[in-house]
């Protein structure tokens, strides 16, 4: 019998290699997703006990929720404001970090810190900065005769206050994506521009920015997802405010399950399904809009 030495691995050994990733995907992604959808079609007691099938009632309840409009508007403002500000500021930070200067290493490390710290701890720290009576920021403002300002309790200030923290924690990752992008731009292009007599602004506008575009796209997509799904910042900074007036869809979903008078796991699961659909739609529209394929090819 001729030994058919094939390059193809046997099914067994292929599974052996793929097994861990497959397990991870099934366990961490697919199984929870299936359970989420199942829960969204179930009727639950306030204790968490499944009482039976709910049909589409949970979905209707979410759509008919009187504050859904407010929550969606908050989410839109939150995502757009945080992502835009993060991208703009990170561009500046990245430019700065790629320049050669004394102590650059230290600065680079310092920029990573907000990224490395736990979001809950960062959020709690900012509560201490913003607090009406003890906040360091308010102590400063009072000294200047401008304060105190109720950053966390006033309807005007709470969202900007949260956005600032959102930007603060998003900058490190984004800036480092841009640093990598800037390093990938060949030095020759700049030399050519210099020879042709381009001004610094022209160089930046016509060379750096276009060549950085793939990095900007990646950073934008990832940030939209992270920021949309951000839970701790809003949950911690907003915990003194009753109701849903300053919640985004993610904290809305959590409160529906455990904190609000609805206290309904099924309804919360339905809101969760909406969240997934929403973020997918947003990202697809964004990619379509920026013609992702051509840009990154």
């Amino acid at each position: 019998m001729p030994r058919a030495r094939s390059d193809r691995a046997s099914l067994g050994s292929a599974l052996l290699w793929l097994g861990p990733s497959l397990l991870l995907i099934f366990g961490v992604v697919l199984y929870p997703a299936v359970e989420l959808v199942r829960a969204s079609f179930s009727r639950f007691s306030i204790t968490g006990l499944r009482l039976g099938d709910a049909g589409t009632r949970n979905y209707q309840a979410v759509l008919e929720h009187p504050l859904l409009g407010t929550v969606l508007r908050n989410t839109l403002v939150w995502v757009v404001a945080v992502v835009t500000l993060t991208l703009v500021l990170s561009l500046g930070v990245a430019q700065f970090l790629t320049k050669d200067f004394w102590g650059r290493k230290v600065v680079r490390w310092a920029v990573i810190v907000p990224w490395a710290a736990s979001l809950v701890i960062t959020a709690k720290t900012f509560v201490m900065i913003y607090d009406y009576y003890y906040g360091t920021l308010n102590l400063l403002l009072s000294k200047l005769g401008l304060g105190p300002v109720d950053f966390l309790g006033s309807s005007t200030w709470i969202l900007p206050s949260m956005v600032l923290v959102g930007v603060f924690v998003s900058i490190p990752f984004t800036a480092y994506v841009f640093v990598a992008g800037l390093h990938a731009i060949p030095q020759e292009v700049y030399e050519a521009a210099h020879v042709d007599g381009a001004s610094p602004f022209q160089t930046w506008w016509r060379i750096t920015l276009p060549l950085l575009r793939p990095a900007v796209l990646v950073a934008a997509v990832l940030n939209i997802i992270y920021v949309f799904n951000s839970f701790p910042i809003i949950y911690v900074l907003n915990d003194r405010n009753p109701g849903f007036t300053h919640d985004t869809t993610i904290t809305f979903m959590y409160k529906l399950a455990f904190k609000s008078a609805e206290k309904d796991v099924g309804m919360s699961a339905a809101a969760g399904v909406f969240n997934v659909v929403l973020i997918l739609l947003v990202v697809l529209v964004y990619l379509r809009f920026t013609r992702w394929r051509e840009q990154t090819r």
Partner: peptide, 18 residues
């Protein structure tokens, strides 16, 4: 990653099980 994070996070938040 989009799909994965979206689903996973939503699933975590929403609670699982029936």
């Amino acid at each position: 990653l989009t799909v994965a994070t979206g689903l996973a996070l939503a699933a975590c938040g929403g609670g699982t099980g029936a």
